[in-house]
Design a protein around this nucleic acid. Structure first.
Lengths: 211, 211
DNA sequence: TCGGTATACATTGCATGCAATGCATGCAGC
DNA sequence: GCTGCATGCATTGCATGCAATGTATACCGA
């Protein structure tokens, strides 16, 4: 129970940038912050290491961000996985197995993401953008892909937090989201696959962290 | 150190079928088997849970195998990831960034896999087959994909161990391996992508565990 | 005989203590 | 002044004890 709490809380602190790339955490420190003994904290730190969010040094753990060669790879993996989930979501839609309300909610989410981006609320935009992408993965019904993407999104988020800059062309991102949703709504799986893949790679190409 | 040993050893015991799907493990039991105290064992069990190889019940952990809906999903994910790594390997080869010796070793591995399969040495064939697929993922240079596939292969291996039956058409598998290697050797990335994807799905289609 | 309840027990979760390890710091010698 | 070594300390790894929890079982009543 406390182990879970510690894991959850530390993960949040890493993902919101409180503990940025390179930050060092010792069992005793974290135990102090979280007001619990070393044992559950220790287990939480190991779990975070398994998540790929921290790396054990012999002397505490340090928060890790993916650097260009690995970050490129992460986006490649993300692209094929999101293409897969978008395709699966479109196929399910065509089979009539997606609740219309879910698609409405995603449209809503896309709109909020665009609004937050326009308004310059970057932290909020990150959360909403991720929720949008996750929503599609959920629609795919592929739980394995969803869990794999969850891990990947976490790692990528830590890695991109430091250069927290607004998307180069917000309108372009928003338009891609809309087209992706439309393809899914219409059950066009090939197109959903292509748009999702291109969108992910396009997002990455717009950042300045490429290798 | 002992934690690592426990993790490694228990993983092996699960992957070789000593602890099959549904087997229950308690901290105390495992501590007895491994001759260590509960603490490192406990951490190892949590690590295995993070690996997706066991699931915590309130009463020990049980080894989990993916059942058809999830197993289908796992193969879908595996197909796109192996397609990605095969494509990347072909691209690297075309760029002259792959050592010829590595390709020779893979040919060798493919031959050994075929031989073990023909000879009915199923356990050996599993190991060699996995080594072959992993070899390609290594050639891709994509470490993120490699680690993701490692997790996935583990989960799939546990799930398919119970119906340990020879491949339906061994010659077909072997031919696909050869064609995949040839595509990579010649730097044909589109073709490597296609063959790898089809090979994975074909393998799955030949089993009787589909949902 | 069946169902419900109480009790005992298996098992985990967490805290704490102790030993081992490795790193930093300071001192001495060159 | 720089290098090498020794010593101290921060920190982790592991063991063990204790409390909490949930489950199985046995017993009792209907």
């Amino acid at each position: 129970m406390q182990t879970e709490r510690a894991h959850h809380r530390l993960r949040e602190l890493i993902l919101d940038g409180t503990y940025p790339h390179g930050a060092r955490l010792t069992e005793l420190e974290a135990a102090g912050v979280l007001q619990m003994s070393r044992t559950p904290v220790r287990e939480a730190l190991r779990a975070l290491a398994a998540d790929g969010l921290v790396r054990a040094t012999g002397r505490g753990v340090v928060v890790v961000a993916l650097e260009p060669p690995d970050l490129d790879d992460a986006y490649q993996v993300r692209a094929v996985l999101e293409a897969l989930t978008a395709r699966a979501a479109a196929a399910r839609q065509r089979a009539g197995r997606i609740a219309p309300a879910d698609l409405v909610a995603l449209r809503e989410c896309a709109a909020e993401t665009a609004a937050a981006t326009e308004a310059g609320q970057l932290q909020q935009a990150i959360v909403l953008n991720r929720r949008f992408h996750r929503g599609i993965a959920e629609l795919s019904g592929n739980g394995i892909a969803l869990r794999t993407l969850d891990r990947l999104w976490d790692q990528i988020q830590v890695s991109t937090l430091r250069s927290l800059s607004p998307p180069a062309r917000p309108a372009r991102v928003s338009a891609q989201h809309d087209r992706l949703l439309t393809a899914i709504e219409q059950g066009h799986d090939d197109e959903a696959d292509r748009i999702a893949r291109e969108h992910v790679l396009d997002t990455y190409a717009s950042t300045d962290q490429k290798g």
